[in-house]
Each structure stands twice: as C-alpha cells, then as structure tokens.
Design a binder for these strands. Structure first.
Lengths: 346, 346
DNA sequence: TTGTATGCGTTATCAT
DNA sequence: ATGATAACGCATACAA
C-alpha cells in the first residue's frame, strides 16, 4: 500500500510534485516526470480514493437500485448488466444495492458520499425510490417512467407510441380484429406501468381505427392456457386475424406451438407482433416481428445523462427522454386474410 | 449534506461528542445523547464514508468479479445474487466489477481502498484473478477451486466426491453401464474445472466398480442431439441402464422428451441422476434426482470467511473449503433392470 | 461527562 | 519548475 509520500521519496521529489505529475495541472520537467512515473510504476501506486474525495474529487461510483422482485428471483435483467457496462465505459464503478429498503439504501450511499449518482431499475408507476429522489442529494436517473419524477431524470421507451404504432401497422394491413396476448404475471404483479401504458394506447388507437381488441381470460388458477387463448380469440368467423403479444417469450412460444398444431400459418392466416420483448435472446418456434426492448440504448442514455450531471453539475431533475419504438421485421406480419379463415377448428 | 460540525452546532455540543454518541466509545449523559440524536435525525446526518476510512475504518464494500462470459452474456448467475445478498446481510455493499481486465479492475479498487475484499465468481482452473491474488493487498475468496490458490481462500462443492458418490449410488443399485450426458458448451468453452473434476472422478470410481461409462459424440457442428445420445447409449443389450447428466437443464429436458417418446420409463427402465445443476429453478418434464449446486451455502460461507478476514484480520490465504455434495431424491433412481431392457427400438 | 488538538492521504494555494 | 503547507470530515488521544 504505497502512498504518495513513498512515491515522492523514491523519486526524490516532494509529494505535491507527484500529485501534479498525475494530474498534469502544471508543467513538470521531463526528467522529473520520468523519475516520478517510474517510481509510481515500481511501487504500483494507486491514489487513495477516500483521500481524493476528501479533496473534492468524485468517487466514480454509481449505485444501481434494482427492483425487489428482480433481486429475489435472481434474474437480473439485461438492463442491469447494460447499466453496469455503460457505467464502466464511462469510467464509473457500480455499487449494487440489494437491501430490503431501497430508499434507505440509496440515502445511505449518497449521503455518505460513497456513490456519486443513482440509477433506478425496474421502475414502477408508483415508485417510492423515484418519489424520494429529492432527498438523495445526488443525481438520479430512472430507467422507466414513474408518475412522480420531478426530482429525477427518466429514460424509457415511448410505450404509448408503441401502442399507437402497433395499431397503425395492423390497421394498414387491413386487420379488423386483433387478439392481445399477455402473460399471467403482469396481471398479478404490481403494475410495471408500461404494460398498461402500451395496452391502453393500443386499445385507444384501435378504437379510432374501428379495430377490435380481444383478450382471453386467464384460467381460474391464474395461469395462462394457450389453447384457451387460441380457441377464444382466433377461431371462427369473428376470430382475430392478428395477435399482438405483450407476453413473456416463453408464453408466446407456447402459443406459437398451439398455432402450428392448429395449422395456422404465419403470416398467411394470422399475423403476430411481439411488443416490449427481447426475442432475439431466446430461440423462438417462429421468427416473430417485434417492437423490442432496447436495454443498451436506454442504459447508454441514462448513464450519459447521469454522468453529465455528476461531472458538469447539470440539473437533470424532471428530464424525460422517451425513445421512439423500434420495429424489427421478421416477416410475421402480413395483410389480413380476405374471407375464409385458416386453421383447423377440430 | 450536513456534516458532524453541523450536528454539533445544532445540538450545542462539540464534534467529538457527536462522534462518541455514534460510536458509543465513551459514556454520554442521557440529556446530551438525546440532543445529539435528535439533531442527527433532523439533519439526516450520515457520516462521510471517505473521512471515516481516512481514520482507519473500513468501507464495508466488497467487490465481486464475475467471469467474462457472464458479463458478455448480460446474465448473472444465482451465485452472483447470493453473494450480493449474503454480503448485504453481513453489512457490506457490493461493488460490481465488469471490466475487460478483471485483474486490473481488482487492483484498482483494492489499492485505492474502495473495496475491503474481493469475491471471485465463475472461477476456472487456470484463473488469472486467483493467481494474482497476492497483489491485491486485500483478502480474496474464490467461489470455485482454481489450481493456483495460495493467496486466496476457496469455497466450492467437492466435485470429486460428487463423482465418487454418483458412481457409488448407481453401483449400489446394480447398474453396470452408465451414460454420461454433457452439454455442448462445456466441451468448447474454457474448462470450468469442476466439469472435468466430476467427470474424471466419476470415471475413476466407475472403473473401480467395474462399471462402464459411455459418452455420446457431438454432431459435427458441435451441437447436441438428444436422439443421437439416446440411440447411441441406451438402446440395445449393451445399452446403459442409467444416465448421469452434467448438462444444462434445457439439454437434459430435451433428452427426457426423447426418453418419453421412446417409452423409457424412469426409473423402471432407466435411472437418471443430474449433477452440478439447479433443477429446482426450472420446470422439468420429469422430476429428476440430483446432486445440486448450492449457491446459497457456498456464498454464505465465502462471505463469512471474507468478513472474518476483513474485520478480524485473519489470514485466509490458502484456505480451501470443499462442501460435501448434497443428494436430493426425486425418485428418478431405481435398481438396474434385470434382463430385458425397456424402450422401443423403432 | 465533555471539549481541544492531531492526523489519516491527497490536492490546491502559496511561496521560492 | 518545484517545495512547503493548509484543508477536506472524521475519530481518537489527551486535557479538563
């Protein structure tokens, strides 16, 4: 654990000279600089982070607060890793907050100056962490779009636009009846906001186009039955000609299996569009066009904003960045079948 | 950002009194203590972590270095979350290291005194991070069992014992021919050590018992074909009567599907034992007995050792804790079928 | 029981 | 171009 004084002694200079060699804030003779750098290298000197912070420097540490659910299920999303990677790319280390009381955790690491800024993940509409952002004393950015966001910045996909866009696309292709597929969990769990945002916007836009949105009920035990969904929403003359899926890829896959067995061809008999998902990471039974999550872009943006605030002291409170939804065409969207429906109603 | 002086002023006492109230290292009159605590509460005072560390305190920060593969795939294992949770439970925050050069990352956070200790995850046999542990200047514990471990502690399951135990169990049940199922990835990827350890030990023990271990070749493109495996290893009079799986649960599941189609009943026609897996977290086609990974226990132990070293300055270098493998009976092991094999060789 | 002074390792200010 | 020194916020030895 060599300190700056050890380096100074080894190089035969004063401590301040060593500091200046490192910071480059004043001119140093090449000779001296060489000596010092050599000593630093030999001793493996790395400045003490705490002492530096005492002198007003930042720690280059960003705290990440994932949602409780993710922590419990040990299934940290792509958002988590992307945030970490982007932070690292910006020269910051990542402090992972996993405590029961997230707000308390955040206050602790910000007030103690351990972290220079905070990223909120898995943000819900009614999010206590975002609501308390004023008390952190450090810049805070939410990946998500909570109702109370006056004191933090928000970065998210524009799910409202995504809903409109989905309706628009299907309408343009002549679809009149669309089935909406959702996972179980989304109904039981505290609403993640964007699920509802998307759904409401989809329904509203569909309404304007004169399109019908159909949803299948869950089985009584709250689980999802793909057979039920298909027979409820797709069969018969009043059956949907397109499926918009907001469901977990595994669930979507189940339904695709049922569709295949029932001899529905995609996109000839039925169009399928997956929204708010990341199908690229999973093997799907059919390639499905989607409007995906974009963790990398969102996290890059979030970290960018945060670092801007940390390093240039820019006030980012209240900033809201909503990304325009992306569309990836994988060929599962086609024009609505004219009259006779496909499928085998046995 | 109230400091200790602000609190002192608000409470009408000196700074040291505030400090002592917090540390409890000398007796304070109830009256004074009350005043101070109230002021602390009102101002939301939290001591500056850096200043504390300057005075020789620790930071209560543990750095976690996951393997590169996990970082690349944006997926963090159960070990990661368990380490984080156990650390938190021990009163430590977790610093996530995701840099390209893990050793450099670790040196940076230890030498700068940002982290008080390190946990290595996804440790390979030939692990640079473990080999360089002497240079960290802070205690280091590996979850895994690298070859070079003189300067760090190691916590792992005893995979050698697991291999012996697996052989023993099957031998006790009268099995003479055992098929070993492995995932593709394990063959191509830099060896994680325990895969080989288990396999070698299984084979050695089987040898001693006069048991035959059969492995199926991969298809030429390096992928796994469950049909191939089943027809290679299970059919015919010389077919295996038991399967030991070291494969990913998804792969195991595929093979279970093939077994079912081929009318192999478990455990009547064939016994199945999964090793080094965490089947509980995935839905399996059949319930399979296993000798599982035990992330929680391992991580608890690892954090325990690390904290012991950090707080009581115990030298933990070279410590190796190997856990005895657990066996979870889910009914997929039975006695070897006497003569006529099950299965439908069409 | 409480207050004052010192030092942790570093950087910025002042001096040379 | 370089060196000496004060200050950052806190915990502790020392004084009272």
């Amino acid at each position: 654990m060599a300190g700056i004084k050890d380096v100074a002694k080894a190089a035969g200079v004063s401590a301040s000279t060593v500091s200046y060699v490192l910071s480059g804030k004043r001119s140093i003779s090449t000779k001296t600089s060489d000596k010092v750098l050599r000593a630093i290298d030999e001793l493996g000197y790395i400045p003490d982070a705490s002492a530096q912070k005492m002198r007003g420097k930042i720690n280059h540490v960003i705290a990440i607060a994932p949602g409780r659910r993710e922590v419990k299920h040990s299934s940290l999303s792509a958002y988590f890793m992307q945030t970490a990677l982007q932070a690292k790319a910006a020269g910051y280390d990542v402090l992972l907050l996993t405590g029961e009381d997230a707000v308390e955790d955040i206050k602790r690491v910000t007030h103690s100056n351990l972290a220079d800024g905070i990223v909120l993940l898995d943000v819900e509409q009614d999010d206590a962490r975002a609501a308390m952002a004023a008390e952190y004393g450090k810049p805070c950015v939410a990946i998500g779009y909570p109702d109370q966001h006056d004191d933090c910045a928000c970065v998210d996909i524009n799910f409202e636009a995504m809903g409109r866009l989905a309706a628009q696309k299907l309408h343009d292709l002549g679809h009149k009846r669309v089935a909406l597929l959702r996972s179980v969990e989304n109904l039981n769990e505290p609403v993640s906001g964007y699920f509802l945002l998307f759904r409401d916007s989809l329904i509203a836009a569909a309404d304007k186009f004169g399109m019908t949105i159909m949803e299948s009920a869950l089985t009584e035990d709250g689980s999802f039955d793909p057979n039920q969904f298909v027979s409820d929403c797709l069969f018969g003359d009043a059956g949907a000609t397109a499926v918009v899926s907001q469901a977990d890829p595994a669930v979507l896959n189940l339904m695709l299996g049922v569709l295949r067995v029932a001899k529905f061809a995609i996109p000839d008999n039925v169009s399928v569009l997956s929204c708010g998902t990341l199908l690229a990471s999973q093997p799907m039974k059919e390639s499905i066009s989607e409007m995906p999550m974009t963790p990398k872009e969102l996290c890059r943006q979030a970290i960018g904003i945060l670092v801007e605030s940390i390093e240039r002291h820019r006030d980012i409170r209240g900033i809201v960045k909503l990304f325009r939804p992306k569309f990836i065409d994988r060929g599962s969207l086609g024009p609505a079948p004219i009259s006779t429906r496909g499928g085998d109603a046995t």
